[in-house]
Design a protein around this nucleic acid. Structure first.
Lengths: 329, 329
DNA sequence: ATTAAAATTGTAATCGATTTCATGATTTTT
DNA sequence: AAAAATCATGAAATCGATTACAATTTTAAT
């Protein structure tokens, strides 16, 4: 309630001195400091960030753009972002865009409007032109998704290699008919994973058949259920499925369970992301693990350095294939 | 980049007029309006929220406190909060406290510091004294959790009744030995659910045995796994389990599957919350559904009205018992 | 054509902090 | 004891908007 002027008046000093006590900038005599601190205490004064931010023209707020909170994949990344940010006196603002361009614009404008200092985008459906324009004068880092031919720095894994390894694992188990359930091929990560899938099949001279390339409408459990349902209706069923995300793979597992199909004997399944659930399914799900926490942590680090003025370089992190019951013979 | 003064200069008017065009407050002649809009366009001007907020002493930002993002229960509530907030020109800032009092204080201070206009707390472990103090002069709404004897308005369901119905359902199926896996009895919702559990047992003259009241260290899957493991070691095993959350119930299901125990024939399970994953488990999980989206929507509505100055009254919303395979004989 | 009323626009104060520059008070040096 | 250097503090400008009030212009009324 009280402002800096009232504190100054009560302490019998000027507001400049109060500010100095507040920020430990210039030396203030012990006696004055004591008076000021007493006044602050008595008035229960809390500095207004609005005044401070206006003057300093910074908000110490970071925006994190996500498509949806309901995908648990993001929560670990966010933990990493938060930990680094808080430790460096930044707070984060989580923004769910729902793939709605209007919402996206609101959030991007918050940076232009000085309400936030920078953006970590994990939002695959972002309006690329707007993002590029913003990137001219502001700090942006992409995390887990990215654009190959745009100069926005990113943190990601080698999606092509990870997918290649996952599919090769299925091949080594003796599978020759391997389906791929993908979501949106426009996303770099999705395209890369498809390329890895194709490379593995090509390397072993296995057919890439159109009806084994399934496209879903989203990344929800239900999308996996439906994709699997379609695959099961095919004349020639695959014996293994590689899904672009765990959520989809879990939906696929569910459908297989419902139909009484044995996993992995009849159909083996590999997912991607290693979300918490993937260890709770029946059978447990083989998947590709990304260092989610570290990716978030690093992204926040890159963003804050970039805000301070240094140029950030993209980073590729390690991944790991985790073999569980859904591919254990 | 450009500020309102530069726009004014370029348009040949005063900054006051630019502001009027920006906010549609007082009438501005068509000609002037055109000139100003042209200047805004040419300079790619975007108003600084910092200046605006300082002057208006509002941030149009709402804080949403959650313990952790990794519990999918919250994501639907957040969707409701977001939809209402965005529709009313507020943005929300999601704050994960991790039960860390220091983080909590940071977030509560954001309201004192005028960086945010109000709080929706879904944070069971919040420092109650601090929250009460803040509630004196600021707007706070509790959502899904609440404090009975504190004057902070809340949105919740009748937890006692819901638990009573869930346990009665288990009794009707013929179960007489019913265990309860709970987390933290200090939370109002947890206490209420325990009371409902006890009321149902008492009504049917069934024993409430201490070893069937399990306490976990958290709400993660793994906590459910461990609780179930303990219950299975008992000399006299329960034939049914009521869990305080779906995450715990899902962990319990997992452990039962691992041990080869038939659900629901040997042990029936009921959860609480109806998270998306509860329909993907094997068997699917019976649970209590809360109108999560609506609760969030209503909480945001109450908060914004409260910020505008009207007094909010607590709201109890409907719930529903959803019967799935884990209790289907 | 003159005057009153209405519409438009500008001036300047304001929100709450930080910071440069100037000044006065102390301390140190000679 | 006088001069120089250091330290502590205050006055006032500033960040970028909004708005009460005043001034000016336009329109309407006589």
């Amino acid at each position: 309630m009280a402002n800096i002027q009232e504190v100054a008046r009560r302490a019998g000093v000027s507001s400049a001195t109060v500010s100095r006590v507040l920020n430990n900038t210039t030396a203030v005599s012990a006696k004055t400091k004591f008076k000021v601190e007493k006044a602050i205490e008595e008035l229960e004064y809390e500095p207004s960030m609005l005044g401070r931010n206006l003057r300093n023209s910074e908000s110490r707020l970071l925006l994190v753009l996500i498509h949806t909170f309901s995908n648990p994949y993001y929560s670990e990344i966010i933990n990493g972002i938060e930990d680094y940010s808080i430790a460096n006196d930044y707070n984060i603002l989580l923004c769910e865009t729902d793939s709605n361009p209007q919402r996206e614009i609101i959030f991007l404008n918050m940076v232009k409007n000085k309400l936030a200092d920078g953006i970590i985008s994990m939002n695959p459906t972002v309006d690329l032109e707007k993002l590029k324009a913003l990137n001219e004068n502001h700090s942006i880092i992409m995390c887990s998704d990215y654009y190959e031919d745009v100069s926005i720095p990113y943190v990601a894994i080698d999606n092509e290699l990870a997918a290649y390894k996952a599919v090769k694992h299925l091949i080594k188990l003796g599978n020759e008919k391997i389906a791929f359930i993908n979501f949106d091929d426009n996303m770099a990560y999705a395209r890369k994973r498809r390329e890895g899938y194709e490379r593995a099949l090509n390397e072993f001279n296995l057919p890439i058949r159109d009806e084994w390339m399934c496209k879903t409408d989203g990344l929800d459990f239900q999308d996996g259920v439906q994709a699997m349902r379609k695959l099961l209706q095919l004349e020639e069923r695959p014996t293994a499925v590689f899904a672009v995300s765990d959520t989809i793979a879990i939906g696929a597992l569910k459908e297989l369970n419902v139909k009484g199909i044995k996993i992995p004997e009849e159909i083996a399944v590999v997912g991607f992301d290693n979300i918490g659930f993937s260890n709770m399914t029946n059978p447990t799900l083989s998947t590709v693990s990304q260092p989610k926490y570290e990716m978030g942590y690093k992204a926040a680090n890159m963003l804050i350095e970039s805000i301070k003025g240094s140029k950030a370089d993209s980073v590729i992190m390690d991944h790991e294939l985790i073999i569980r019951e859904s591919t254990l013979k």
